[in-house]
Design a protein around this nucleic acid. Structure first.
Lengths: 172, 172
DNA sequence: CGCCACTTCTGCGAAATCCGCAAGCTTTGA
DNA sequence: TCAAAGCTTGCGGATTTCGCAGAAGTGGCG
């Protein structure tokens, strides 16, 4: 009774483990569909996901586990820290001279930094920071980020209000 | 055998439904602890969470459900769209003249926009965009965002590489 | 103080889910 | 042709989820 399966899907949309340039495996359509299911509801049972993507419960379980192990995906609770209460948040744009990635690595190791991305705009790096209060924020930006060798200058954007936060790409 | 409970927690850290200015309820310490557990693992069973925060399984279940219903928290799979494959991503800083919030609302309704925050920096709004490809990105920025009445100017930061993405505030 | 409405927590069974495992099949690649 | 991967089906047992009834704490009010 597995007649309505995806018509003996094979080869093309299977996971030929071709690698994208950055070393992470390219995902096939089925894994993408699984991720999409979990973007809608991170606790959705494996059987339900399997039905949606045309895979057995066990197969979904294996795939999800692998995606988690590989770090391709994480299943977590997300909130708006500002709503949750007691915190100051800001985006910091950073101009770097020299090796951008090494600076980014340092930022990554800071616990107050939640988000680090290297960009092609006028900033070399964007980093999102979550702090206890204004003093803490000031300390992180001025004492710890600006002090890094290679950081030429920074510009801060203190968050006033988070209007949207979704994880639904692929659902379009 | 629930002796090591949080010492008859009452009143102060309970959820006296005092509202923070933006209308969302202030969370008590227990809910915060629950969220923290789910930030570490969005699929962690209720019983395990209950043991960690000093509540019964059923109570945790109710709380989590309420947090989800209220929109305070969501449990989802998150990925790096760039790693996942076929997409262009950018942060766009926007200078607004006139009503900032109404512009932010319009952005919020765009499916390509994943993240919208009003800031106190030189930009009035920061918006993160996820697109199919360069053409799509260009289209969204030039035709749809820049065209909005009230948008004075924009600056784009195309993502090259996502270095960090966590949801672990409160775990410090 | 007593009563009531309301909310939250607890303590159950019952149902559903998760998890590991085994045997068989197909495709891929060396 | 053989080995490796990945999927499927099937299966119990352990765990988790779920719904519900009852207990317990709170706040309003006469």
């Amino acid at each position: 009774m597995h007649s309505e399966r995806v018509a003996s899907r094979s080869a093309d949309q299977r996971d030929s483990p071709r690698e994208s340039r950055n070393g992470s495996p390219t995902l096939d359509a089925v894994s993408l569909a699984i991720i999409q299911q979990l973007q809608e509801d991170g606790r959705r049972p494996y059987a339900a996901i399997g039905k949606a993507v045309g895979l057995s419960e066990a197969a979904v379980r294996q795939r999800v586990q692998k995606l988690l192990d590989q770090g391709v995906m994480q299943i977590v609770a997300v909130t708006d820290p500002l709503t949750v209460g007691f915190r100051r948040q800001a985006m910091v744009g950073i101009h770097v001279e020299g090796d951008v990635e090494s600076i980014a690595d340092v930022l990554t190791d800071m616990s107050e930094v939640e988000y680090v991305v290297m960009t092609a705009g006028s900033f070399d790096i964007l980093a999102e920071i979550v702090c206890e209060d204004d003093d803490h924020l000031l300390d992180v930006i001025n004492k710890r980020i600006r002090a890094l060798p290679g950081v030429r200058s920074t510009e801060s954007f203190v968050y006033m209000k988070l209007k949207k936060q979704t994880y639904m790409w692929g659902t379009r």
